[in-house]
């Protein structure tokens, strides 16, 4: 399992400074979240861990080693599922195994196993267009899980879902994570989502993106969204983001 670290990281796109002096460290098996307004560069930070983006300054490290590119040990779950519309659920989920040359019989066995885990058992032959929004995102999570990665990177995975689906998906995500020892990093603009899921929350400001506060959440799970401690944290984060005095 891997630790994730950004050390003094800055990122520029031309003249635009997106990230500035970011220092974060996520331990093995920890569930971390980055909360911030849209356009604050939080997705860019996540994409560095996925190996899709390089820092302009500083270093992105996995287990203390600089990240050179994508690795099957670190899976990124995209916003809006990004399933291939021309492939069935089975083929979408099995894509990583297929690319790695895993024989068909084993591929199907592992795909079935992971589809059961995300409650999509029996939907092997469906096309993405036949699935609901929540089911698509489940398939997208299955596509990452089937690789059995050390790290799951989630880029606002539930942003496009309705509120009720989002809540049940959050519980499913906790089920997947708990006891797996996987390191998780969730990007979200939903403060409650971060508070419900994460051990540690980085609050990020906009333009350039900077970490303004790191908050530890020690409440045991499942957490009560209406508890006083929860509300206290929420007020605190809203204040940090300038949404409340």
């Amino acid at each position: 399992m891997q630790t994730l670290e950004l050390r003094g990281v800055g990122k520029r796109f031309g003249a635009l400074q997106v990230l500035k002096e970011i220092d974060i460290r996520i331990e093995q098996g920890e569930f971390a979240a980055i909360v911030g307004p849209s356009g604050c560069g939080k997705s860019t930070a996540l994409r560095m861990f996925a190996g899709l983006e390089n820092p302009s300054e500083g270093q992105a490290l996995a287990d203390g080693v600089p990240i050179e590119g994508p690795s099957p040990a670190r899976m990124l779950i995209f916003q809006e599922h990004a399933l291939y519309p021309w492939s069935t659920v089975e083929d979408n989920v099995g894509l990583g195994l297929e690319l790695a040359g895993v024989p068909k019989a084993e591929r199907i066995r592992r795909v079935n196993e992971v589809l059961e885990k995300v409650n999509l058992g029996g939907f092997n032959r469906y096309y993405p267009s036949q699935l609901s929004g929540g089911m698509k995102q489940r398939a997208s999570i299955a596509r990452a899980l089937v690789m059995d990665p050390d790290v799951l990177l989630l880029d606002e995975p539930y942003g496009a879902l309705d509120a009720l689906t989002r809540l049940s998906m959050q519980n499913e995500l906790l089920d997947i994570w708990s006891g797996s020892g996987k390191t998780m990093l969730l990007i979200t603009h939903d403060i409650d989502e971060a508070l419900y899921l994460a051990d540690k929350i980085y609050v990020m400001s906009a333009r350039p993106g900077q970490i303004v506060e790191t908050i530890r959440i020690d409440q045991p799970r499942p957490r009560d969204r209406s508890s006083e401690a929860f509300a206290e944290h929420r007020r605190n984060i809203m204040r940090l983001l300038g949404l409340e005095d």
């Binding site: 996925a50 899709l52 994508p70 899976m75 990004a82 990583g96 790695a100 596509r143």
Partner: peptide, 22 residues
Amino acid sequence: SHTHIEVAKVLGAKKGQLLRKV
């Protein structure tokens, strides 16, 4: 789609596989 290409890259696709699979 740029995202479709990135999905394949994250899953470990090489150049030839990108062409065939995306």
